[in-house]
């Protein structure tokens, strides 16, 4: 099967309803405000260790989540807060995990990089770059074994795309026709090393050609383009045709982690992206110019989201630290975990 280049159209003629457009706006704004708040709590010492913010990349997960149905799975690397919010996990539980508290998704034992929701089929949150790619293929393997039509979204970055195990997974996924969408979130920098300096090919998705995996490049600053490409990939996987690669070109506004001085790119480069390609502004403009929403409507949405985020921060600060006994729990299971 030949790989092909994206034919995704710009978002000028959205094939979505006003309500859908509004929900993308809300979902993306929730991620952005949540991440800004997380950055603030980190600054106050309430969040420790590593904290990787998703600001700028919101259209990727929101566009793809719009193509999922009940039973689909998702797994990603350590820049994972956006994925959790987009698949419907509770902002309170996510923020409380960031602060290392009892009411966090992992009862404070996972932290920013290691969070899971069996209920939402969100399989983490992984701190080892590239390791989640075979894991995602394995979840897809289980779905194929059981004979259902679920798909697994396996997200990883342009940096992870240089790990050998990614290609081990590509090979087996193609060989066994696993229903796995490999989503390369190309934000152009692997920590501080630009794609140009780390990656031999300009188009990473084309590496799938070597395995007979079709794919395409997608404008990741345009939520509608992401959704359209996602629908194509999902249809391919659900039809039993095997894996699909989406290389979504996106951009992270903030540093790699909280302690990144960002000396590897200019302030102008970041500012230009923010001014000209911001995914949230783009949808906002569509809503306003299409008269799907008024300034007041959007202000009301902003206010609601600010409240959700502030509430999550309050919740995360008030939740107690885990009991000392938690140190010794969840090392071994006594029963087989129930399938979600």
């Amino acid at each position: 099967m030949a790989a092909r280049k994206s034919t995704s159209k710009p978002a000028s003629k959205p094939n979505v309803s006003a309500d859908e457009l509004k929900s993308y706006y809300k979902d993306m704004l929730l991620i952005r405000r949540f991440e800004e708040k997380a950055g603030q709590l980190y600054g106050m010492g309430l969040i420790g260790g590593f904290c990787h913010l998703y600001i700028g990349q919101e259209a990727v997960v929101v566009g793809l989540e719009a193509t999922t149905k009940e039973g689909d799975s998702r797994i990603t690397t350590y820049r994972d807060h956006g994925h959790m919010l987009a698949c419907g996990m509770d902002p309170n539980g996510v923020m409380a995990e960031l602060t290392g508290r009892e009411d966090g998704y992992s009862r404070g034992k996972g932290g920013s990089m290691h969070m899971f929701s069996k209920e939402k089929r969100f399989y983490g949150g992984h701190g080892i770059v590239g390791a989640n790619v075979p894991l995602g293929a394995g979840i897809a393997f289980a779905d194929k074994y059981k004979g259902n039509d679920h798909v697994t979204f396996t997200y990883f970055g342009d940096g992870a795309a240089n790990q050998g195990q990614v290609y081990e997974a590509f090979n087996m996924a193609a060989l066994w026709k696993l229903p796995c969408i490999f989503v390369i979130e190309n934000n152009q920098y692997a920590m501080g090393t630009s794609q140009q300096r780390s990656t031999s090919s300009a188009e990473i998705w084309e590496r799938g050609k070597a395995f007979g995996i079709p794919g395409e490049a997608v404008d990741g600053m345009d939520v509608l383009a992401v959704k359209e490409a996602g629908e194509k990939a999902v249809a391919h996987c659900r039809a039993g045709k095997g894996p699909y690669i989406l290389e979504i070109k996106t951009y992270r506004y903030r540093g790699h982690s909280m302690s990144d001085p960002a000396k590897y790119r200019t302030r102008e480069e970041v500012q230009k992206m923010r001014d000209e390609r911001d995914p949230i502004e783009a949808v906002r403009n569509l809503l306003l110019t299409g008269k799907h929403a008024s300034e007041e409507d959007l202000k009301a949405i902003d206010k609601d989201i600010k409240k959700v985020v502030n509430d999550s921060a309050e919740f995360a600060k008030e939740s107690p630290e885990p009991a000392l006994e938690e140190l010794w729990t969840d090392i071994y299971a006594t029963e087989v975990p129930q399938e979600a």
């Binding site: 293929a137 394995g138 979840i139 897809a140 393997f141 779905d143 074994y145 087996m172 060989l175």
Partner: peptide
């Protein structure tokens, strides 16, 4: 062949697929 599966020589990859499959209920 569905339940007894020859893999390519790719230990890192198939160990990861095995772990993922265990999370998926197998």
């Amino acid at each position: 062949a569905k339940r007894v599966i020859d893999t390519p020589i790719t230990e890192h990859g198939f160990a990861g697929i095995g772990v993922g499959a265990s999370w998926g209920g197998l």
